[in-house]
């Protein structure tokens, strides 16, 4: 780890000015990704501006039925907040199925959205990697790619977006509010995550020094009937191979409304709009669920090592919808032995 200087910010505008005025400065929030990548020399800022004292920790339900989550609210506090558990169970479940209790106490919500990929070629600080060193090539395309993406990939990058809660937030049409050198901005969350295309080093539309201040989740009545299903190599403390965030509203045996997004399979948290379009007006039958899943995964471009994800994702979609129809709304995969966030 290279030497760094340290500044602790006490107000948000000063923090933004400090980082935006210096290309070699970065914000420091929970540090759970950043300190790790500093130590690996994957990130090399000269100076860290510690924002942990900024007043951005609120978790407030809106009168309309949504929730506003401060960027520095910790994952554990958001998951435990009664207003989140009541209105948005898929958010609470996605958070509690991610990382470990210690990491959830540390990691901020803004940092969660901005966490870097788990691709081992990105993190080893020496393999060719277009995300870390643009133009050097992608080692994963021909390399070890079992955990990599099958949707939203390009020849330049196939790294999976690692966040769980971002998948739930994408399903809910959340908005990301920021403060930057040019003032306040707001992004639809689906526009906040960029596909790799030919510039995989650009992961979000913010400019240097722009800081996430708040995540706004709009009122979504069907989210009270929702879940986050996570499928992974071990029962806990592991990234998703496939995950499904889903909310469902059924009237007279017909799907009146549905929200769905997929994690673990794409280069960004993947809103499953094709599946949603197929499902609205469909009957609550497995055949329809399976067809919706197949439609969503039709454009998948797997490698030899991750081809299993195409089938696994379809099965996970069917299971998530089955569970919602059965009233079984805990997101831990059956048989995982996980605690059930109720």
């Amino acid at each position: 780890m290279r030497p760094i200087t340290y500044v602790r910010a006490t107000d948000t505008a000063t923090a933004v000015t400090a980082v935006s005025s210096d290309p070699t400065s970065d914000f420091l929030a929970g540090g759970t990704t950043e300190v790790d990548l500093l130590r690996q020399n994957v990130m090399n800022p000269r100076r860290l501006v510690d924002i942990n004292d900024l007043p951005l920790t609120g978790i407030v339900g809106t009168p309309e039925g949504g929730v506003r989550i401060g960027a520095l609210a910790r994952m554990s506090d958001v998951a435990a907040a009664p207003v989140v558990r009541e209105r948005f169970p898929l958010i609470a479940q996605a958070l509690e199925l991610g990382a470990s209790p210690q990491l959830r106490n540390m990691a901020s919500m803004g940092g969660n959205l901005l966490q870097r990929v788990r691709c081992s070629y990105f993190r080893d600080a020496e393999s060719p990697c277009n995300k870390r060193e643009p133009g050097t090539g992608c080692s994963a395309v021909e390399g070890f790619s079992r955990g990599h993406a099958v949707l939203g990939t390009s020849e330049h990058c196939i790294a999976t977006h690692p966040s769980d809660v971002a998948v739930a937030l994408v399903a809910l049409d959340a908005r990301v509010h920021t403060l930057g050198p040019k003032g306040e901005r707001s992004y639809a969350i689906d526009d906040f995550f960029l596909l790799p295309g030919d510039a995989p080093h650009r992961e979000h539309p913010m400019e240097h020094g722009e800081l996430i201040t708040e995540i706004e989740v709009p009122a979504t009545p069907i989210a009270r009937h929702s879940l986050y299903l996570k499928v992974r190599d071990r029962a806990s403390y592991e990234f998703a191979l496939v995950s499904v965030a889903a909310a469902l509203s059924v009237m007279d045996g017909v799907i009146a409304d549905v929200r769905m997004a997929l994690g673990g399979v794409a280069t960004k948290p993947w809103r499953a709009r094709r599946a949603e379009d197929f499902l609205i007006g469909a009957a609550t039958q497995r055949n329809d669920f399976a067809m919706a899943a197949r439609v969503e995964m039709a454009d998948a471009r797997p490698t030899a090592m991750n081809a299993f994800k195409v089938e696994l994702a379809q099965r996970a979609v069917v299971r998530a919808l089955d569970m919602l129809c059965d009233g079984n709304e805990t997101g831990a995969a059956p048989g995982s032995g996980s605690g059930s966030p109720t």
Partner: peptide, 13 residues
């Protein structure tokens, strides 16, 4: 900073 606030930078030593 532009606001006139002074943030004490510490390190790298």
């Amino acid at each position: 900073t532009q606001r006139g606030a002074v943030l004490a930078e510490r390190g790298p030593g």
